[in-house]
Write a protein that binds this DNA or RNA. Structure first.
Lengths: 345, 345
DNA sequence: CTGAAAGCGCTAACAA
DNA sequence: TTGTTAGCGCTTTCAG
């Protein structure tokens, strides 16, 4: 197997110096049409392809973007679809800008610190995308000290570049839909308040009620962890104590827990209580009844996260975050006939 | 910001030559205890960390493993959980061997060819893991011509290193369970026969029946695409024409389609028909009734795929494929009381 | 055991 | 415009 041709070979064959070949090959100026043509031709004939490592070492860029996911296995399983779509979007944007995507999975924030450090030390990435920022963000120190470009997916508490859903809108859309279906007493099963997105969603919930002139009742705002079991517990407990005809759930899994609890109490969905949730997943589409959900468009979250990161790397100071809007996907659980109406319209 | 220390700095500080520093740093022999200590000490004091790119360029290895996924978006959405777990396992094994994982998502086999070529040309990976091999495998030519190490996830038709589930066992386990629950007429909703795993699963189905002395009836073997809609159609059509008390479905999604069809026909699950399916996902656990499923242990699939790849890279000729066993996870849909029995036991 | 020197393949000053 | 020449930071012969 012949050693693959280097830029030297190309230069020699084209009868020019390596530097000229380099310029020509990379489409830089200061090369005559004719010379460029000769070089390109030679490269073609030789089947030349640049060696990415050498290139990267020489110009100091790795053309590698790292994804750091500081989330537990449990959390991952619960949101596998979310990450698949996210990664897909990231991949697309990365490809558009000539970057590679490398994975740095961490099961905890501590592990994330290790991975961030390793990436920085080995200078193996030009930038980092980090999901699920929390209050602590222990890796932030390293990040800032080494001034490595990074962007968060999710709204962090600290000042930092980030991309997130417009979570106020997300819940507003969902709740508004229930209101339009005629519901006036809408319970909200939110997630834990230490997630910034849960805070934002509550704002959206209130906004939707306010817009419709409906009163905000604290008693109808419930909270549970993002698991089916936790949601079940909370709803089983609280549902009998309040009157409501609709429920807005913070996630698909919580919706399932809630529905199981309601059914166990003899409440039918959607006949007695209509349900809308956040996260448009295979669970929401395959569940019986299928669940009306707000799609988070994770693909675009990932896409823009990479875009922003590339901008940061390129030195463009981009202040405001990118906020991806949600979109309502109507199914059976909200009990609205509007789906058919739309089709007819 | 001070330029980060290089191996030169370390050597100088330790009062040795770079080559000696290199040997010491990499734990190679031919360095005296004392010298090694001095070097390590110097590195520590300087906060030295090797530059991965330089290292890679020098020794010709990228320490990068590429994952190629030639699957449509549609397919991906249907099996997001599968890939999450797969990738997680790959990541673990890669980390164990000091490799990085880079993503090369392709939405089709043609695109996969492009990505494989790019990876080869840029010499950006030491080896490739490729999922979903098909009859055509158009990238195989490039792979072989350049002799780049690779392993398939899934059984290919061509001779090649691969890792897969033991699909004969997978269905045997599922069907055997139904038999143990007392069922004697068990329908099998399989996937398309052009998937090698579907072929294998049919073998397992027959084996389970044979072991129990039950007759094999071709009429009870159905086939549908891997979507809910397709499964629904087939079961809606065929269910009334045959007598059976249990159904073994080739995937979680197919099971859902089948159950919807059965319910539409007034058949209750699990009271009238017990259901077991393949793929232990969030859908199977959250569905009502929750679905008894054969877990494919995708994590280990990914883990072993990388292990095998690393072995291949290291020149160890490993002939036979790794076959990951499935495991039954009992839930409501099979209607067996054995779950409780086990807990009591 | 240790050190000097030659690359790995490419980019980027700087000179011509 | 083009060519010469240093590196990028590390590994690896090959002599001492």
């Amino acid at each position: 197997m012949n050693r693959s041709p280097t830029i030297r070979d190309v230069a020699k064959r084209a009868g020019v110096a390596v530097s000229t070949a380099s310029l020509a090959l990379n489409g830089k100026p200061y090369v005559s049409r004719e010379t460029r043509f000769r070089v390109l031709q030679a490269a073609e004939e030789l089947g030349y392809h640049p060696h990415s490592l050498a290139k990267n070492l020489a110009d100091g860029r790795t053309r590698n973007l790292g994804l750091i996911t500081p989330i537990s296995l449990e959390h991952l399983f619960a949101s596998a679809g979310f990450f698949s779509r996210l990664i897909r979007g990231m991949h697309r944007a990365a490809a558009e800008h000539g970057y590679n995507l490398s994975l740095h999975i961490a099961e905890s924030e501590e592990e994330a610190v290790t991975r961030v450090r390793a990436a920085i030390r080995g200078r193996s990435v030009d930038g980092l995308i980090i999901t699920n920022p929390t209050v602590t963000c222990p890796y932030l120190k390293d990040l800032k000290r080494h001034r490595i470009p990074f962007v968060f997916i999710g709204r962090p508490l600290e000042e930092a570049t980030y991309v997130d859903n417009d979570n106020v809108e997300v819940s507003r859309i969902g709740v508004r839909h229930l209101i339009e279906c005629g519901h006036r007493r809408i319970a909200f099963l939110n997630g834990p308040a230490h997630f910034t997105f849960c805070v934002d969603r509550l704002v959206g919930y209130r906004a939707a009620l306010a817009e419709a002139g409906l009163p905000y009742e604290e008693d109808l705002v419930w909270q549970s962890d993002l698991t089916e079991g936790a949601a079940y517990q909370v709803v089983w407990e609280l549902a009998p104590k309040h009157e409501f005809t609709a429920l807005f759930a913070g996630s698909d899994v919580q919706a399932v827990g809630a529905i199981r609890a309601l059914q166990a109490r003899g409440v039918r969905v959607p006949q007695d209580v209509a349900v809308v949730c956040v996260n448009n997943t295979d669970l929401t589409s395959h569940f019986i009844p299928s669940l009306t959900a707000v799609d988070l468009h994770e693909y675009w979250l990932g896409y823009w996260a990479v875009k922003r990161l590339v901008q940061t790397i390129d030195g463009e100071r981009t202040e405001h975050p990118v906020l991806i809007p949600g979109e309502l996907v109507e199914r059976e659980s909200c009990g609205c006939p509007s789906q058919d109406q739309q089709r007819r319209g």
